[in-house]
Amino acid sequence: MTHVSIQELTKVYPGATEPSLDRLSLEIPTGELTALLGPSGCGKTTTMKMIAGLLEPTSGDVCFDGRSVLRDKPENRGVVMVFQNYLLFPYMSVADNVGFGLKMRKTDPAEIKRRVGEMLDLVKLPDLGDRKPSALSGGQQQRIALARALIVQPNVLLLDEPLSNLDAHLRFEMRDLIRSLQQEMGITTIFVTHDQEEAVVLADRVALILDGQMKQYEKADVFYKRPVDEATARFFGGHNFIPGHSNGRAFDCALGKLVLPEGAKSGAGKLTFRPENVRIGHDADGENNLDAVIEDIIYLGTQTRLKLRVGDTALEAVVNPNEIENHPKGGNLPIHMPRTTLWVIE
């Protein structure tokens, strides 16, 4: 049960001119599962290593329950980090790997054996204790790495790209396992990923880091509905950014005057909306109706991506394939955008 507070954390590697991480601040409430999301090289793993005490920050602070832990050695912080490539000790059996943390604490061997058994049951690999890690599949190694971390009952669990090395069908299994274990044990958990989908399916809250700086820290759905800026929206698959001017109630741009939801920003800015929120057909009340031309149709299996043009403005929409069966490329397509799906950014 640990509240993790990261304050203005900065890391400049020796010889580097730009900081790898620039004044990152985050509050992670007790027992929550938080994702640090960002492209490779944005400082996510650096952040993790600094929380774990494996790397010294250039400036800033890491506090657990209000107390700075920067002076604590890594083995005394109660933080366990699970690396992306699992790093099971290759010369030890699976059981010895899982029991490693307890052995280092000089726990009684009989007790270690009992708890290793429990952990192997928990990750649903009860019969693999005698094997060597090299005899396990990637998914199994991942679960053993998780068991090895959880057996020491850490206050804070750090996961580096926990799902990225797994096949699609294993990802959901692993996701469910991580979530259920994390909630059962109430461990404050932080994981890093470059995959927005991984962040969204796993985390309570997501912190987006771009260029070493935190862009936004919110529940996952907010990134889709109300991104802070274009870079954030783009990272989450946003495509439509139309410059214009907002008066707080309507947005004046090349598409005409579109009605905005309550709480929208005033002044010059860009209108953004998700491709999947573009509706086919006109709205009966006549609100935010547009007439588009279909420039291209890209069939993606369960969805279809449309490249549209309204006047000189290009738009993208993602629709259900059935909805546009009778609309050929080059034809006209009436669309509308419900006001709640619109959002203004700077």
Binding site: E75, L87, F89, F100, G101, R105
Partner: peptide, 16 residues
């Protein structure tokens, strides 16, 4: 050094 990092975070001292 990653194996050693893992060990440290699992509670092993430098010597261990």
């Amino acid at each position: 050094e990653d194996y050693e990092s893992v060990a440290r975070s699992l509670g092993a001292s430098k010597w261990q």
